[in-house]
Amino acid sequence: MTSRMRSWLRPVVPLLVGYSIFGLLVEAAVPRFLPENSLTTFVGEAAKAGVFAIWLYLIWRIAGTLQGIYGAGSARYLERTPIWRILMDVTAAYILAAFCFAVLYVYLVRHDANAFSTELNLGNAIYFSIVSMTTTGYGDISPRSGWAKFVVCLQIMFGFLYNVLFFSIFAGLAGQRRSN
């Protein structure tokens, strides 16, 4: 990627994430705290589009990190990229993925109130997303509908593979740096 594109993306991504969170909070506040009108509907729908863009960004960042670590120029990538930077990218992608799955759960509940064993607002969905992605699974919230079960299975597989893949890489990197 060119440095020009990187410099353009650097301020856009945090703005997109912030706007998406704001839009989802606005949507969650309707109709309890805010009136439902064209502005609140637009903000909520635009936030969902923002979350989709975040998904694309996540896929792009994860693919870039994998290419850097396993690709043809991996030695150069690992020499010029500090471990803290790789760790920060991987952690940020993990947190964003948990948030995006939470938004997906809220979206499922809005279309099917019985998709989960309890009503999911954004806060409960974030909790459930983290518990699912870490494969902790307390059992206080469970999926009921077919789509909800499918998405939860995807998240569990994503979380497991992400943990195995990236955190084993860090163990290897730490051992490699220590031996040098």
Rank of each mutant, 00 (worst) to 15 (best):
F22P: 03
F167I: 12
F101N: 02
R4V: 14
S132N: 08
E119W: 08
N114I: 06
A49I: 05
A72V: 05
F33M: 11
V109R: 14
C100N: 14
L15S: 10
V30C: 07
R80Q: 14
A49K: 00
T65P: 01
Y94M: 07
C153N: 15
M157T: 13
L39P: 10
F52W: 03
L108A: 08
V17Q: 01
Y105T: 10
G175T: 08
R177L: 10
M133T: 06
G159A: 08
G68W: 04
L78A: 03
A47M: 02
A72N: 07
S74A: 10
R76A: 11
L16N: 10
P143Q: 00
S3N: 12
G137E: 04
L16A: 15
N124Y: 14
Y94Q: 09
S7V: 12
M88Q: 09
T135M: 14
S20E: 00
L87F: 15
W55G: 03
Q67T: 07
R177S: 12
L154M: 11
G175F: 09
D89E: 15
I62Q: 05
F42T: 15
C153I: 13
L16Y: 08
A98L: 02
I95Q: 09
N37F: 01
A72L: 09
W147T: 12
R178S: 12
T134V: 14
L24D: 09
F150V: 00
L39C: 05
S3L: 12
A29G: 12
L56P: 01
L108M: 13
A93F: 04
T136F: 11
I141G: 02
L15E: 01
F158M: 01
F160I: 05
D140G: 15
F166L: 03
S142D: 03
A29N: 11
F116Y: 10
V164T: 12
F128R: 02
G71H: 06
Y70K: 11
G139Q: 07
Y19C: 07
Q155E: 08
V13S: 04
R76E: 14
P11E: 10
S179G: 02
V152Y: 05
Q67C: 04
P82C: 05
Y77N: 04
Y19I: 06
Y57A: 02
L120R: 02
Y162L: 01
T2F: 03
Y138K: 04
V103K: 04
L87E: 15
Y107I: 10
N163Y: 09
M5V: 14
E119P: 03
I156A: 06
V151P: 01
A29Y: 09
T40I: 04
S179D: 07
T135R: 02
Y127V: 00
G73P: 00
L39T: 15
P35Q: 06
T41D: 07
R110W: 15
A174R: 10
F42N: 06
P31R: 06
W55A: 04
F150D: 08
R4L: 13
L56E: 00
V13W: 00
Y77E: 03
Y127M: 00
V90S: 07
R4H: 11
F116T: 05
I141E: 08
R61L: 10
G123E: 10
